[in-house]
């Protein structure tokens, strides 16, 4: 089996140009989907029979939480690929993911807290999903802290890649242990309002928003990726070409 096509595909100049060409194909549909989902979620979807209009926070909270986990997974997979096949481009992908994922984790925490106040009557509830989200934020911060602390860029890439892989192995364990821990201490967290059951007109904007956020992630990743590739690349000829455009 020939791997030459694979290496050509993964070569930095090729990926750089590909990323540049693909960005609008993700950015515009993402923008359109997000706007449509905003309209659907804020206007078209009927209020929840228990939570009223308060349930509309779900259109921001759930997609953010989805992003936090999906981006971490992408980062860890890219890190594993980079370690196994020694691919510089994959390191660049992993490096691009962390700030995006961390920012959406913060959004998920803030919206979860804003949702918690009408639902539970407190700004912060140690419920398993919020707690897991908080720990995920710590994992992101650790990754970015480690990357920032190592001066040699190659070493920073490879060391933080090991951490990303270790982290993803731990994510399900952390989630399980937090759920288990929470099930022991159920008593105080009596929800004042029931969980919303989503009917189709409520669900469709949610799915659109999640898809829109996912496409948005790819678009932002592609922009960051180009920068990260440039940082890692020393070969002058194609960089000169790329910079002139």
């Amino acid at each position: 089996m020939s791997w030459t096509w694979f290496h050509r595909l993964a070569s930095p100049p090729h990926i750089y140009r590909l990323a540049q060409r693909l960005t609008p194909w993700f950015a515009w549909p993402a923008g359109a989907l997000i706007l449509a989902a905003l309209y659907g979620g804020l206007v078209l979807a009927p209020p929840d029979y228990q939570q009223g209009d308060g349930f509309r926070i779900i259109y921001m909270h759930a997609p953010s939480a989805w992003m936090s986990l999906m981006v971490y997974t992408t980062m860890a997979v890219a890190a594993a690929v980079a370690l196994i096949w020694r691919m510089k481009v994959a390191h660049a992908v992993a490096a691009s993911c962390a700030p995006i994922g961390a920012s959406f984790t913060i959004a998920a925490l803030v919206t979860g807290s804003l949702w918690g106040e009408p639902m539970w009557g407190t700004w912060w509830e140690w419920d398993p999903r919020l707690t897991s989200e908080l720990i995920l934020l710590f994992l992101y911060l650790g990754y970015m802290g480690l990357r920032g602390a190592i001066e040699d860029p190659q070493r920073a890439d490879r060391t933080s890649a090991v951490l990303a892989v270790v982290g993803i192995v731990n994510v399900p364990i952390i989630h399980y242990s937090v759920t288990w821990w929470n099930s022991l201490h159920q008593a105080p967290s009596v929800m004042r309002l029931g969980k919303p059951t989503l009917s189709t007109p409520m669900l469709v904007p949610l799915l659109m928003m999640m898809l829109g956020f996912t496409l948005f992630f790819v678009a932002v990743l592609l922009v960051r990726l180009r920068g990260e590739i440039l940082v890692r690349e020393r070969s002058a000829s194609w960089i000169r070409e790329v910079l002139s455009t």
């Binding site: 720990i135 710590f138 994992l139 911060l141 650790g142 802290g145 480690l146 951490l163 270790v166 982290g167 731990n170 364990i173 952390i174 399980y176 242990s177 937090v178």
Partner: peptide, 10 residues
């Protein structure tokens, strides 16, 4: 500490 503590929570 930042790297180890989150992994130690379980």
């Amino acid at each position: 500490a930042l790297l180890t503590l989150p992994l130690s929570l379980p």
